[in-house]
Write a protein that binds this DNA or RNA. Structure first.
Lengths: 182, 182
DNA sequence: TGGGTCATGTAACCTGTTACATGATTAG
DNA sequence: CTAATCATGTAACAGGTTACATGACCCA
């Protein structure tokens, strides 16, 4: 039930269309949750049926019409409930197809494994660069809006992301060294 | 398609029943992939239809009959293919409902957030203890079997797990400090 | 002339979760 | 007496992925 609540959280900041939500999602929640546009439309529909949202059409002549969603009182209540029932158990689980691959890498040659780990290390570095950009845009936002209580928590998630990729990079480098010493 | 390939990898070590696979899964892949028993049975069925596995019944009088699965040549080929087409893109994504919660924690009181972070830090410490136990059992296995090429990669995934939880713990402690200084 | 942006979705499929069912044996 | 272990599953539902459809406008 996390995508629904992610969308709820964003709509709590202000009314938006599905299309706009998708773009906002991409620049914020996307670091730790992924969603296709089509899925967003489906969820918005379901959420409206539950009474968490209302919608109204905005007619346009030059472009397709818009369907703007607004959070309701019951939607805000649902968001609060969700925040109060922590997802801590979930927080302790890792789900990584890549680690599964590593687990079975004894069936592959060391040369292939080294190659794979080096590409992984490379991607980690690229992700770190992207985190720098994200940080910059968040702290810029802070200067402009002064919504510092929200921004503090956004920065905490960003810092988690950065540390995650740093950890991955260190792990990969150490793994490469171990394999090369063989 | 990762659960299928995880099961394939385990069956590559030796023939097993669904029930046994579930237990082996719990003590190995479970650190980075989770699966219900019922899902395992369903996937085994699908994999047999694809020709990756064959099965035979083992009759028992005192206990329920067993259905033992064996990997086929085409199953081994599939495993190899899977290993050769890296899942690196996937490796770069984090999916965490907990981080989504943190992202929206500006809507909650600082007191509640501190409580949540402290519980999280606690759980990280517990996970680290479990990683110690896992490490011990893997290195014990190594001494017994001498399958050192496989064990090397298992240890790499375990080391990733440990580092992940260590990172989480440090992040949580730093976050707590930031909130307390407010 | 082709591709991108704007904006909505539907349909089919795959994967994951939860609840339920059976029925004997064994350990506390 | 109760709960766990052994061993198989089915059914329903929720959530995520992929492919497809429409149609105008703008930019190179």
């Amino acid at each position: 039930m996390s995508l629904k609540h992610g969308l709820l959280g964003l709509l709590n900041y202000g009314s938006m269309t599905g299309y706009e939500l998708h773009k906002v999602f991409q620049n914020s929640l996307n670091f730790f949750w992924q969603a296709q546009v089509s899925q967003i439309y489906r969820e918005l529909n379901a959420m409206e049926k539950k009474g968490w949202l209302t919608s109204e059409y905005e007619m346009q002549t030059d472009k397709p019409n818009k369907k703007r969603y607004t959070i309701t009182k019951s939607g805000r209540q649902e968001l609060k409930n969700w925040l109060n029932h922590g997802r801590l158990e979930d927080a302790m689980t890792i789900r990584s197809a890549f680690m599964m691959e590593i687990f079975f890498s004894g069936e592959r040659s060391t040369r292939e494994n080294l190659e794979q780990l080096k590409t992984f290390a490379d991607l980690c570095e690229k992700s770190l660069v992207r985190m720098d950009e994200a940080d910059a845009s968040v702290s810029n936002y802070e200067k402009v809006t002064k919504e510092s209580d929200r921004v503090l928590y956004w920065m905490l998630t960003a810092s988690f992301g950065r540390r995650y990729f740093e950890m991955c990079l260190r792990w990969a480098k150490d793994a490469i060294q171990i394999l090369e010493e063989e």
